[in-house]
Nucleic acid binder design. Sequence first.
DNA 1: AAATCGCCCAACCGCTGCAAC
DNA 2: TGTTGCAGCGGTTGGGCGATT
Length: 221
Amino acid sequence: MASSLLLGVRKGAWTEEEDNLLRKCIVKYGEGKWNQVPLRAGLNRCRKSCRLRWLNYLTPNIKRGDFTSDEDDLIIRLHKLLGNRWSLIAGRLPGRTANDVKNHWNTHLQKKLVAQTQGTDKARITTGSTILIKPKPRTFSKTTTFLIENTTLEPNIRTNENSSSPKAIDDSIKWWNNLFETKENGEGTTLSDGLSLGLLEDLCLDQNIWEILSSDQILAQ
DNA sequence: AAATCGCCCAACCGCTGCAAC
DNA sequence: TGTTGCAGCGGTTGGGCGATT
């Protein structure tokens, strides 16, 4: 912080020249090592600013323009499942950034939902409270029994040699297993924590969110 | 034409988790 | 085991810009 003040790190809108410098730097050195980027690129910006600028604006394949109704629908359903996990939601929307999704939600979708709730469909919408599914582990240990024994786990899960205690890891893994595990009981099929499979299917409707949620990328985040 | 208002989005800030030492 | 630094995330802010008065 003090060094930033002393160096007079630039803030505010990025110029085209700065964008070009950052772009060249990433092309040359690749993403990552953000603390080195300002120096490498010759930019008088903090590493956070560089990272954000790249992720939200300069990354190739970023989709510009209005969100489609399909994208809106997917965001709404994922938000109902995941809550404000913008990076996870954005991960399911090719070309959209977490910031885009967050802004779009705050400026459009939230109002849309409020309007819907105040409409004739109010009773149906308000009968169920939001169920948030909060993914627990971000990393897994290579040495856990789960990874050793469960060879069918998707290959690109981030592994981590020195993660927390085996018990904590196992708890996290159980959490994921339970989430995707269905149970038969007298009242029908349910998911863990009393989450009804029927309700989840209702949330997903024609969008195959179930497949999306259980795919490797969401586990790898 | 000028002033005001409201919306939208880019950028910043603060916090958390993880890894290295 | 505690400390430090880095990366990433979500919440919030501020400025640009179009619409309205």
